[in-house]
């Protein structure tokens, strides 16, 4: 039992008996974890609540497969991440990145990056996030996931390993390639701005 009084063992036992009360407690306990993952890796045209619902139904339907070898939180994270990856794969359209599609704020951020070596102001965070989202949309789902976790959310390699189940060597190689691809998109965008 944890500090909040949630007894995971009793809850899992209830879920195996298809107890609705146990399912309700489980959803309440892990909603914030699932929502955080879904929000970070949400495909463009998908509502976060719908994807959360799909994740939880998948978890509850497959609870019999949970062996207890990894903490339940990691198992939940893996299912949430895999569901997001599948949703991203289904969204096969990879938008072309064009300078003309950028807003004034976004263009200003890129000009600022080129002209000054200083850190961007906190006011630019939202515009920067939009630019990065546009660049990430061109990457494969796994690459996008890695860049988000490592560079935007500040996860360590070990955190990513626990959340995804991938080994460290795979994560390093994939992260390096993803970063190279992202840099290529970034350079292409900057080239368009200079024309």
């Amino acid at each position: 039992m944890d500090e909040a009084g949630f007894d995971i063992e009793a809850c899992l036992e209830g879920l195996r008996r298809q107890d609705e009360r146990a399912a309700t407690d489980f959803v309440r306990e892990y909603y914030s974890l699932v929502l955080k993952i879904v929000r970070s890796h949400l495909p463009r045209r998908t509502a976060e609540e719908d994807l959360c619902q799909v994740v939880f139904i998948k978890i509850l339907s497959n609870i019999g497969q949970y062996s207890g070898k990894v903490p339940i939180g990691h198992w939940v994270s893996r299912i949430a991440i895999n569901t997001c990856l599948n949703a991203l794969k289904a969204e096969s359209v990879r938008p072309e990145i064009r300078w003309s599609d950028l807003s004034e704020d976004q263009a200003a951020v890129l000009s600022n990056l080129a002209s000054s070596p200083a850190e961007l102001s906190p006011d630019s965070a939202a515009a920067s996030r939009d630019i990065v989202e546009t660049l990430l949309a061109g990457l494969k789902p796994q690459d996008r996931l890695l860049i988000t976790m490592l560079h935007l959310e500040g996860y360590s390699m070990d955190d990513v390993r626990q959340a995804t189940g991938w080994n460290i060597a795979t994560i390093k190689v994939r992260a390096f390639r993803a970063r190279q691809k992202l840099k290529q998109f970034f350079q292409e965008l900057n080239k368009q701005g200079k024309i």
């Binding site: 955080k36 951020v109 850190e119 965070a125 920067s128 990065v132 989202e133 560079h151 900057n190």
Partner: peptide
């Protein structure tokens, strides 16, 4: 370009939804 991309990513990281 690497440094600019790092600064862009750091700035974007500030706009990530907080847990």
């Amino acid at each position: 370009d690497d440094q600019s991309l790092d600064r862009l990513l750091r700035s974007a990281g500030q706009a990530m939804p907080h847990p």
